[in-house]
């Protein structure tokens, strides 16, 4: 529950910061540039504000949805890649496709920055590596978490079904039939470990430190946010 709340607050914060980065501040700068240099023209200049709104909005939506999902999930990977794609489009539009023209008086000047724009897009696309790496690093933990959740749900369902069966069937006539049992996922343990589930190995944590559930990095107990991956710590872990 706490983790879910922190994800929502993360998403709200991401939406806010991304709106500033990709919509509000660029629109203010564009207004300044177009009012001071009305002779400046690019391929998208006539509708640049609409493009910034559209692609900026897409970036905000994708980034917000990315943050709302746990690292290691396919949804987070998908929205992360979507956000990157929109950032590339946004940059391409803001740079005017790499060609800017300026005319004043008898002068006409043209800058062809196409190659520079491609280099910038290449730099931005490097973040795809980070998004994928975050996914692959957290994927195992996410799969394990999902499996445990399914097992817990299956155990609950099995217990509920058994309880219902006990109430339905008279004790004097127990039925050994399998048809009365419901199918449910079961956590199968090794034969020699029947009846014994070893506790997970907990590494000793230094005093005054806590471990991030997402990336596993240790942080001081007073921290609200993991400095490595940016995820929020549960409120009760902050001392």
């Amino acid at each position: 529950m706490t983790r879910g709340k922190s994800r929502v607050s993360d998403a709200v914060w991401t939406a806010f910061t991304e709106s500033l980065r990709f919509i509000v501040v660029p629109l203010i700068l564009l207004d300044l540039v177009t009012s001071h240099y009305p002779q400046l023209a690019t391929a998208f200049m006539s509708q640049i504000e609409g493009f910034v709104f559209f692609f900026g909005g897409m970036i905000v939506a994708s980034s917000t949805l990315e943050t709302m999902h746990r690292p290691g999930t396919y949804k987070r990977l998908l929205f992360g890649m979507c956000a990157l794609t929109f950032v590339g489009m946004w940059l391409f539009v803001v740079f005017g496709g790499g060609v800017a023209e300026f005319s004043y008086g008898p002068y006409f000047v043209q800058f062809d920055l196409t190659k520079i724009v491609y280099i910038v897009l290449g730099g931005v696309s490097l973040k795809a590596v980070l998004v994928y790496l975050t996914f692959s690093v957290n994927r195992k933990a996410e799969v394990e978490r999902a499996r445990k959740r399914r097992v817990e749900e299956a155990e609950k369902a099995r217990a509920g079904a058994a309880h219902a069966a006990r109430r339905r069937t008279p004790r004097a006539h127990p039925s050994p039939s399998f048809s009365d049992l419901s199918s449910a996922e079961f956590d199968v343990t090794a034969d020699h470990e029947v009846g014994f589930t070893p506790a997970p190995y907990m590494k000793d944590i230094p005093k005054g430190m806590k471990t991030c559930e997402v990336c596993g990095v240790q942080s001081p107990t007073k921290d609200y946010v993991c400095k490595n991956c940016g995820s929020w710590f549960p409120a009760d872990s902050v001392i």
Partner: peptide, 30 residues
Amino acid sequence: MATSIRAVQTAIALVNVLIFALVFTSLWPF
């Protein structure tokens, strides 16, 4: 695992700083 993410983050930041420097030095003289 956190080390690899941090290394990639550092590399990306470094590359982006270089790209920013390239863009700035290319445009500023005009």
